[in-house]
Write a protein that binds this DNA or RNA. Sequence first.
DNA 1: TGGTGCATGTAACCTGTTACATGATTCG
DNA 2: CGAATCATGTAACAGGTTACATGCACCA
Lengths: 179, 179
Amino acid sequence: MSLRIAALGLLAQHPGSGYDLLKRFDETMGNVWPATQSQLYGELNKLADSGLIEITDVGPRGRKEYQVTESGHAEMLRWLASPQNDPPYRNARLLRVFLLSELPSDQARAYLSTLADGAKADLERFEELRDSIDRHLADKQDDSDFFARAALEYGLRVRAVEAEWARWAADALEARSKK
Amino acid sequence: MSLRIAALGLLAQHPGSGYDLLKRFDETMGNVWPATQSQLYGELNKLADSGLIEITDVGPRGRKEYQVTESGHAEMLRWLASPQNDPPYRNARLLRVFLLSELPSDQARAYLSTLADGAKADLERFEELRDSIDRHLADKQDDSDFFARAALEYGLRVRAVEAEWARWAADALEARSKK
DNA sequence: TGGTGCATGTAACCTGTTACATGATTCG
DNA sequence: CGAATCATGTAACAGGTTACATGCACCA
C-alpha cells in the first residue's frame, strides 16, 4: 500500500516517467521509503491498470509520461487522511542491541560505537542535504518544500539523539564491566 | 534473516516453546522486531530443520521445548558481529509527512498533532515498561537486562524528540499559513 | 462440562529484493 | 563508433500478514 501512495504522491507533486520517479526516490523520499527500480515499474503499471494514473505522452525510448488521475488523487487523500494500519516498526540495529549480551563485552561496546559513528555520518549527510535545499530554495518556498524540510528535520533530530544514546550506552556498559 | 536471528537469540537467552517465544516477542522484542504467530512457528521449524535449534522435550498438547544448538549459536554470533545488509529503514508516518502538502493546511496540522500525541502515548507506555523492569529486576542485574534496558532507553529518547519535533512542525506550519 | 488458555499448523496473498535482460538515444 | 545514460521490463525468491483450522489440558 505505502509504495503505491508514495508513487502517487510524487506524481501528484510533479508528473513524470518511472525513470524520473526513481531519481526522485533516491534523492529524498528514499530516506523514509526506499523503492527498487523493479518494484517501481511494476507499481506504476498496476496504478495505470486501476486507473489511478494515466499515460499522457510517450517519448523516445518508450518513455511513458505519467500523470495522476482524479480517482488517483482521491485515493491518495484517503490514505493521507486516515493514518491507520501503518506497517509495524522494525529496526535491525536495535534488534542487535537486544542480543548484544551474547557477545563479549568489548565487542558489544565496539558495536555501540559503530552505531554512534553511523548516526553521526547520517547526521552529516542530512546536514548537507538541508544546506543544499536551503540554498537552492531560499526564494520559492512552496508547501511540498516545507514538508520535505520537516521530514529532514526529523531525521536530523533523531539521528542526533541516536548518536548521543549510543555513546551513553557504550559508556554505561564500560562502567558496568569495570565493577 | 532478522527474524531467524531474533528467535535464535531469544532461545539462546532462555529455552522454551514457540508459544513461550511468542509471548516474549509481544512483551519486549516486538517493539523493535514484531513477529506474527504464523511466522514464528514456521521459522522455528526451519531452524530445527537446519539444525540451528533442537527439540529437547515434548510436553502436553504437543508442546515442543526448543534449545539452541552449537551451530545455531555460532550463526547468531556471526550475524551479531557483522552488522551489514540490514534491511532498509521505512517509516510510513514520515512518508505521510512528505505528502502532507496535498492536504489543506489545517488537516496537515491536525496530522502533526496526532503524531505528537502518538509519540507521547508511546513514551508513557515505555516509561511504564521501564518502571516495571526496574522494579522487577533491581536486584538480579544480568547482561541481557542491561541491553533490553538500553534498547528501551533508545525508544524513550527517540519518542521524546519525535513528540517535540511534531509540535515544532505543527507550530511552524501554523506560523507559515498566517502570513 | 464448558470456557479459557495452551499449542501448533497451513494456505493464500502481498510486498520487496536480486539478478537478469533488452534496447534506444545522445554526446563526445 | 563507443560509452554513458535513458528507459522499461521479467522471473525467482525471501519475508511477512491474514485468516482459517485443529485439538488438548486445566480449572471452576
